[in-house]
């Protein structure tokens, strides 16, 4: 690519190659991955929900973030559908919660950021800054899901990561479009 990354005007991810990968074990099975990924989506949904409440006096921004809450809900739904299609069963969330108590509380969102810390940061920020944080979080999740699809050994788990990265790509395009409108 001419000019290297300095010429690149698109989105970039941050962190070392293994960033976020410790969260998912390469030997994890499809069920564990769905459980952990679902929890991260839940964290992102809680973040968007919290941010939408920051903009109660800005109906357009509030509606925008509520739209992102719905997108995360759809993402969670698609994740479960993918799992069911691949395995013919539903994930055992009760069993997963017992095994991954710390990870499955919805306290961490995509990109490995703590929801509470992100909401504290965002509370006195404008729409554009909150969207930029959302994009940074989603682009790191996109980066992670692509790398995990290559790193995991389980074929079903690979398919789930491919599906997740494809959905993140669509989500990022939507965020970029929203950011363009508000800047």
């Amino acid at each position: 690519m001419e000019g290297g990354i300095r010429a690149w005007k698109g989105m970039v991810a941050h962190g070392p190659p293994e960033s976020g990968m410790a969260y998912f074990s390469p030997a994890a099975n499809a069920e564990e991955i769905v459980g952990l990924a679902w929890s991260l989506e839940e964290g992102s949904r809680l973040f968007y929900q919290g941010v939408s409440e920051h903009f109660s006096d800005d109906p357009e921004a509030g509606k925008m973030f509520e739209g992102l809450v719905s997108a995360e809900k759809n993402h969670e739904k698609h994740l479960l559908e993918t799992y069911e299609t691949l395995t013919g069963t539903q994930p055992d969330f009760v069993g997963l919660r017992e095994r991954f108590q710390d990870s499955l509380s919805g306290a961490v969102m995509e990109g490995g950021i703590k929801v509470k810390e992100a909401l504290d940061w965002a509370k006195d920020k404008g729409v554009a800054e909150s969207l930029e944080l959302a994009m940074a979080m989603e682009v790191n999740a996109y980066d992670l899901y692509i790398k995990m699809s290559r790193a995991v050994e389980d074929k079903q788990a690979q398919e789930i990561f491919k599906k997740l990265s494809a959905e993140e790509q669509v989500h990022l395009e939507k965020l970029a479009w929203l950011l363009e409108r508000r800047v």
Partner: peptide, 27 residues
């Protein structure tokens, strides 16, 4: 394209990659 359809390679140093990289790039 789907990330499966191409190789995306970052040939810089690890510190540079850590600072910023194209999503999905293999260092």
């Amino acid at each position: 394209k789907n990330p499966d359809e191409y190789n995306l390679v970052d040939v810089r140093q690890p510190m540079e990659y850590e600072g910023d990289h194209l999503p999905g790039a293999n260092l």
